[in-house]
C-alpha cells in the first residue's frame, strides 16, 4: 500500500536530497548549577532514509529527549542536528516551526487527537497548518484515512474509536502532509499486543519510503522485528547499534544498487 501523491497548494521548503538525520556530539542538560542533570552525553548517530530505526532503552535513558531534539522541539545544550542537509541551528523561531510543520510528522503515545474533531478533521490539521484550504485538506485526509483502513470511520469522533483505530488516525495525521521525518513515541504502549502488531505493520507499510526517515521510540520488544535498525540507549548514551536481519537485507540491497 502506497500513499497517494500529495499535490500541495503551497510549495515545500527546498531540502537538499541528502540522507536523513545526522546528530553529532549531542549533549542536553536540564536545570543548572548543582541541580543540573545531563540527559544526553554526546550522542553521535546518522539515521538513513528509507528505513525504520527503533530507539530502545529503559525509562529515563534519554530516548524522548533525543527525539525531541531531533524533531526540533528541544534545543541541545551542545552538538548539532542536521535534517536532510539543513543544520537545525540555522533555523530559528518561526523558520524552525515552519520547517517542522512541513518536514516532521509525529505519532504520540497518547495519540493526542482532538476529541472535538472527527477522525478526518484531525487528520487534516497538518495540512491546514501548512496553508491548505479546508475542503482540499479534508479530501486529502479522507484519502489517507482510507489508506490506513479507516475509510468507514472518517466522521467518527476519536472517543468512539478503539485504541488501535485512534493510533491509525494518528499515523494518518502524521503522514498526511508527506513529511520527510516521522517521529513515533511509544506508538504501541497504550495498545494490546495484537493492535500493537497491526499498528507497527501499518507503519512499516505506509510510512517507510525511500525519501523518509522513520524513528520509533519503543519499550515493546515484541515490535523489534519491524525495525531495520535498533539503537539501544542507556544513561544518555547509545550503547548498542544493531542492524536487524530485515535491516541488513535492506542495507545489502541498497549497497548493491549503489555499486
Amino acid at each position: 500500500m502506497v500513499l497517494a501523491t500529495v499535490s500541495e497548494p503551497s510549495a515545500k521548503e527546498e531540502v537538499p536530497a541528502v540522507a536523513g538525520v545526522a546528530c553529532h556530539g549531542l549533549v542536553k542538560d536540564f536545570g543548572s548549577g548543582e541541580n543540573r542533570l545531563r540527559a544526553l552525553h554526546g550522542i553521535d548517530i546518522d539515521v538513513r532514509c528509507g528505513e525504520m530505526t527503533l530507539l530502545v532503552g529503559p525509562s529515563g535513558c534519554g530516548k524522548t529527549t533525543l527525539i525531541s531534539i531531533i524533531a526540533g522541539l528541544l534545543t541541545p545544550t551542545a552538538g548539532s542536528v542536521t535534517l536532510f542537509g539543513t543544520p537545525q541551528s540555522a533555523l530559528r523561531g518561526d523558520r524552525l516551526v515552519d520547517f517542522r510543520a512541513q518536514n516532521v510528522g509525529f505519532v504520540f503515545q497518547q495519540y493526542n487527537l482532538l476529541p472535538s474533531l472527527s477522525a478526518v478533521e484531525n487528520v487534516s490539521i497538518p495540512l491546514l497548518v501548512v496553508g491548505w484550504r479546508r475542503p482540499a485538506a479534508l479530501q486529502r485526509a479522507a484519502a489517507v484515512l482510507r489508506e490506513v483502513g479507516l475509510g468507514e470511520r472518517l466522521h467518527s469522533s476519536p472517543t468512539k474509536l478503539s485504541g488501535g483505530q485512534q493510533q491509525r488516525v494518528a499515523i494518518a495525521r502524521a503522514l498526511v502532509h508527506e513529511p520527510r521525518l516521522l517521529v513515533c513515541d511509544e506508538p504501541t504502549a497504550a495498545l494490546d499486543a495484537q493492535s500493537g502488531q497491526t499498528v507497527m505493520g501499518l507503519l512499516k507499510q505506509v510510512a517507510v519510503k525511500s525519501d523518509r526517515t522513520v524513528i520509533v521510540v519503543t519499550h515493546d520488544s515484541r515490535v523489534f522485528q519491524f525495525g531495520d535498525r535498533v539503537l539501544e540507549m542507556a544513561d544518555g548514551r547509545i550503547v548498542q547499534d544493531s542492524v536487524t536481519p530485515r535491516g541488513s537485507q535492506e542495507l545489502v540491497r541498497s549497497e548493491n544498487s549503489a555499486s
Binding site: 522541539l73 516551526v97 510543520a101 512541513q102 516532521v104 509525529f106 493526542n112 497538518p126 497548518v129
Partner: peptide, 15 residues
Amino acid sequence: LRHFGALKAMGVNNR
C-alpha cells in the same frame, strides 16, 4: 494544554 502542545509540535506557531 496537551492538545495545544500537540498543535505546537505539529508546527502551529505562537502567533
